[in-house]
């Protein structure tokens, strides 16, 4: 692994971001720096804009009609991702995403993992095999599925499907992984496994995770950002947010008094 800059140096910088869905403004002047090789949790009550922000980072919001950045910028490695010379396809390869509801393709496990590489035109069987194994190991799924790689992914359990989606994401070697409430549809055991996996992944990837679950944010993130009504209220190391929040709204939320 190449040497990296100091862990505190930001990989994503969000400046003065205003974001609208048609006439409705979803984000107001958000300023946030997301550090590399750390887990950043976005928390807040429903509709506070945290998922919107997440989907801005790989421009999945482009797909929604009327959704647009009104003001401000998002820079990854200093490059404005909304600049015309940025290719959204390349961006998405670089910024992977795991969804709330696991969404494996109705294909075999192997083909699910190989999908991203095949898109890029990789045909080399040996290379595909290697990446599939590597990614499944990376997602801590290899031992469970290595004997049935060519069976349908829809036969896996919910937790396994979600880890498969993570494996599928890391197969294309992103630098950043976005997770949109990845455990909300899972039982506690599966959730624990995913959280464990997140801990392992942070060594290599910068992870941004949206979660409703305060304990989850506390357990597995390094940084936490609290959103309320489309505004970033507070951003600090997780320990500080949960033990010593600077803002009273944050305190009310993390202590469970609203939301």
């Amino acid at each position: 692994m190449p040497k990296t800059a100091a862990s505190s140096s930001p990989i994503v910088e969000i400046r003065d971001l205003d974001f609208c869905y048609g006439p409705v403004q979803a984000l107001h002047a958000v300023n946030l720096a997301i550090p590399a090789r750390q887990v950043t949790a976005l928390i807040g009550p429903s509709g506070c804009g945290k998922s919107t922000l997440l989907r801005c980072l790989n421009r999945m919001n482009d797909l929604i009609e009327g959704a647009r950045v009104v003001r401000g910028s998002i820079r990854i490695h200093g490059i404005d991702i909304h600049a015309p010379e940025v290719d959204v396809i390349e961006l998405r390869k670089h910024v992977g995403m795991v969804f709330q509801k696991s969404n494996p393709f109705p294909k075999s496990i192997y083909e699910n993992i190989a999908y991203g590489l095949r898109l890029q035109g990789v045909r080399d069987r040996a290379r595909l095999d290697a990446v599939v194994e590597q990614s499944l190991r990376g997602a801590a799924l290899w031992d469970e599925v290595k004997d049935r790689l060519h069976q349908s992914a829809l036969g896996l359990s919910g937790g396994q499907q979600q880890r498969l989606c993570i494996a599928r994401t890391i197969a294309v070697e992103p630098e950043i992984i976005l997770m949109d409430e990845p455990c909300s549809a899972l039982d506690p055991v599966a959730t624990a496994k995913i959280e464990e996996l997140i801990q392992e992944l942070r060594a290599r990837y910068s992870i941004v995770i949206v979660t409703h679950n305060m304990q989850q944010a506390a357990r597995c993130s390094d940084q936490t950002a609290f959103f309320y009504l489309g505004r970033l209220i507070e951003h600090a190391p997780t320990r500080d947010i949960f033990t010593n929040p600077a803002n009273s709204q944050t305190e009310a939320y993390v202590s469970g008094r609203f939301g």
């Binding site: 396809i89 992977g96 969404n103 393709f105 991203g116 898109l119 599928r168």
Partner: peptide, 23 residues
Amino acid sequence: VPQGLRAAALALGATRWQTIRTA
């Protein structure tokens, strides 16, 4: 066809046409 499949493909860096063709 569920939206999730399209989102998954796009998030993996598929172009629109690749998404349609494969997912």
